[in-house]
Computed example of a mutant assay.
Amino acid sequence: MVAREITKDVFWVGALDFDRRLFDELIPLPEGTSYNSYLIRGSEKTALIDTVDPKKEEELIVNLIKLGIEQIDYIIINHAEQDHAGSLPMVLEMYPRAKVVTNEKCRDLLVALLQIPAESVMVIKDGETLSLGNKTLQFHLTPWTHWPETQVTFLVEDRILFPCDLFGFHQATSELYITNEAEAYRSAKRYFAEIMMPFRNSIRGYIPKVRDLNPAMIAPSHGPINKNPKFMLDAYEDWVSDTVKNVVVLPYVSMHGSTQILVDHLVGALIQRGVEVKPFNLSHTDIGELAYALVDAATVVVGTPTVLFGPHPQVVSATYLANALKPKMRFASVIGSYGWGGKAAETIVKMLDHVKVEVIEPVVIKGLPDEAAVVAINRLADDIAKKHKEIGIV
């Protein structure tokens, strides 16, 4: 790794992880990721903002050594999760006179997760500042923009915002800055869907405060630095809003073909009615792509065969995930088939207890779909199109 200067006396000293393909043992990483750490050298004091994943801590230390950093006075921790704070014990071992600077909730988590001595932490409050001499750090608490202890740090003189997970995305790239906003938009939206969507109501309240700071750059903890903050703030403002699009997301599994027939007919019926539909066969779906589609879809229709007495396990998993991500969808339904019994539709509906949706009458048939099943699917397509029209998106 190579430390790189962002602006005078402000350096990227993090690590790139080109080979990582799974995050939290759950989230696919098709482009790898980065763990961004930043070194600020003031005229009187030196500060490190966030660390890196413990697997990459040697790269962080090497970068600091190559820069000739003999002393770090402050280590700012914006978020206690291990991919950002996990190398803190190593950095403190290398720079034992450094003071950890964070908020009270984050301090408590650092003590619990990393066994950092509480007395080594300087607790700051919302709006407080810390002088490095000719550079000033300003701290803003942003709880529940991911975890309850998250905060952002603003470098006042250079107008650089260090928001940790907020406004970033998973990508390992040799480019220090975003160079293709169209590609960055897609990666950032996927990241929002996978990580930030459950907290969209909290994030919505902080966007105006970030705009008021008028940052010249956003330097997140994952992905390249953004030199056009308006681009990302505008995107987030859309994603966290209550506005939905004329889209149906259709995750499904079919074991013996009956549910597949229903899915195929519903896809065609929705297209005929001017409704965009995005089917996802869960047997080989990238869950990040499914989450991406859920960000602004108006409706979700879950397709499942019946396994014993309930929905297919892959459908259960996807439904659990969708419920946990809490997308802003307005309507939901279920289609599927069974052989000798079961309550798949009822189970799926009960699992969506964290999202406030209107349930449109499901279509669950016995055996191979017949003409009556086709009529029922057409009715479902009509109902969806009507609901979309009622909220003004058709």
Score class of each variant (00 low, 15 high):
residue 66 K to L: 12
residue 54 P to R: 11
residue 33 T to V: 10
residue 210 V to T: 08
residue 241 S to T: 03
residue 124 I to T: 09
residue 74 Y to T: 01
residue 21 R to H: 10
residue 352 L to C: 03
residue 338 Y to W: 13
residue 10 V to H: 03
residue 112 A to S: 15
residue 239 W to T: 08
residue 161 L to H: 07
residue 277 V to W: 08
residue 21 R to W: 01
residue 268 G to S: 15
residue 292 Y to L: 15
residue 163 P to H: 02
residue 117 P to K: 11
residue 380 L to C: 09
residue 271 I to T: 12
residue 379 R to H: 13
residue 15 A to F: 01
residue 126 D to H: 13
residue 197 M to E: 07
residue 357 V to D: 09
residue 4 R to M: 09
residue 231 F to W: 14
residue 225 I to E: 04
residue 162 F to Q: 04
residue 268 G to E: 14
residue 260 Q to F: 11
residue 263 V to A: 09
residue 150 T to E: 15
residue 359 V to I: 14
residue 39 L to Q: 03
residue 226 N to P: 00
residue 33 T to G: 00
residue 270 L to T: 12
residue 370 D to M: 03
residue 346 E to M: 03
residue 307 V to S: 07
residue 294 L to F: 09
residue 385 A to C: 07
residue 139 F to P: 08
residue 3 A to W: 03
residue 167 F to R: 02
residue 269 A to D: 03
residue 351 M to D: 05
residue 291 A to Y: 01
residue 4 R to T: 14
residue 81 E to D: 13
residue 230 K to V: 12
residue 259 T to S: 04
residue 158 D to T: 05
residue 208 P to W: 02
residue 230 K to P: 00
residue 134 N to L: 01
residue 4 R to E: 15
residue 118 A to V: 09
residue 329 M to F: 12
residue 200 R to K: 15
residue 208 P to Y: 03
residue 343 K to H: 15
residue 39 L to G: 04
residue 369 P to I: 06
residue 17 D to Y: 00
residue 375 V to W: 04
residue 247 V to M: 12
residue 66 K to C: 05
residue 115 Q to A: 14
residue 9 D to T: 06
residue 55 K to E: 15
residue 314 Q to I: 06
residue 29 L to W: 02
residue 166 L to K: 08
residue 304 T to S: 15
residue 303 G to L: 09
residue 322 A to D: 01
residue 24 D to R: 13
residue 76 I to R: 04
residue 136 T to Y: 02
residue 240 V to Y: 01
residue 216 A to E: 12
residue 391 I to A: 07
residue 129 T to S: 13
residue 348 I to S: 00
residue 282 L to Y: 06
residue 16 L to D: 12
residue 82 Q to F: 10
residue 132 L to Q: 06
residue 134 N to Q: 04
residue 197 M to P: 05
residue 240 V to C: 08
residue 90 M to L: 15
residue 21 R to Q: 13
residue 109 L to F: 10
residue 313 P to F: 06
residue 44 E to H: 03
residue 227 K to S: 11
